[in-house]
Design a protein around this nucleic acid. Structure first.
Length: 216
DNA sequence: GGTCGGATCATCT
DNA sequence: GATGATCCGACCG
């Protein structure tokens, strides 16, 4: 769709409250820690939903054997966004069923990313419930977004958002109220078979919206 | 409370 | 042809 000359649409203009690109130009494990407490908002399909990030995982570079861009794999069509600009989304399909949202970090041509594993719903909760609803049972609030596949489904995130700059509609990250280091729990990543002892999962301590399997 | 298996497909060997 | 940064329902206790 063409825009009138001299005026960008709100869809392509950065949000004033969005985190700036330099926030992401740091090692993934630093960004992953800092994103705890930040706000993730989507306006996909005309529906606004938002949540507070409460759990992340860092995939720190080619030396990280659990990364989609590990050295042994190299640069491929799938992991290409991880080599791109810090602050863009890397969205991939897993198990043929679910979508997972990552934020690309560090530097161009250095593949690193932060997986958004869980958020605490803030706005559009009934829309999230409608998107997540599958069976007969009404989902508890804490089951709406307590896992990476759930976050994507609740917010309407799909492969269509792969490579999207996360400082603007329809999907962006903005600063939250801030979380002290003492309130962040660090532990091993989940669902991987390589580097299982690397302490690269970050979650807000005692938050009921973190995924199952998260350490106390 | 915990564990188990099926769903389902893009990606890479 | 095998695998996977997951989820959910079924079943057991």
């Amino acid at each position: 769709m063409k825009q009138p000359t001299g005026r960008a649409s709100s869809r392509s203009r950065p949000r004033a409250d969005a985190l700036v690109s330099s926030s992401y130009s740091r090692p993934a494990e630093i960004v992953a820690r800092d994103l705890i407490g930040a706000i993730l908002t989507s306006t996909i399909d005309g529906i606004e939903t938002a949540g507070r990030i409460v759990e992340t995982e860092a995939y720190v570079g080619p030396h990280d054997p659990a990364s989609h861009a590990a050295e042994r794999i190299g640069r491929t069509a799938r992991n290409e966004p991880m080599f791109g600009e810090p602050g863009i989304a890397y969205v991939y399909r897993i198990y043929g069923i679910h979508w997972c949202l990552n934020v690309v970090t560090d530097a161009v041509d250095f593949p690193a990313a932060v997986l958004i594993r869980a958020i605490e719903p803030i706005r559009g909760i009934e829309h999230m419930r409608a998107r997540r609803h599958t069976g007969q049972k009404r989902l508890l609030d804490r089951d709406l977004t307590s896992g990476p596949g759930k976050v994507a489904q609740a917010l309407g995130i799909t492969g269509a958002h792969n490579g999207h700059r996360l400082d603007r509609a329809p999907l962006w990250v903005s600063a939250g109220s801030g979380v002290t280091p003492a309130a962040v729990t660090v532990g091993p990543r989940i669902g991987i078979t390589q580097a299982i002892d690397w302490q690269l999962r970050f979650s807000e301590a005692r938050n009921p919206y973190v995924s199952r399997g998260s350490a106390a």
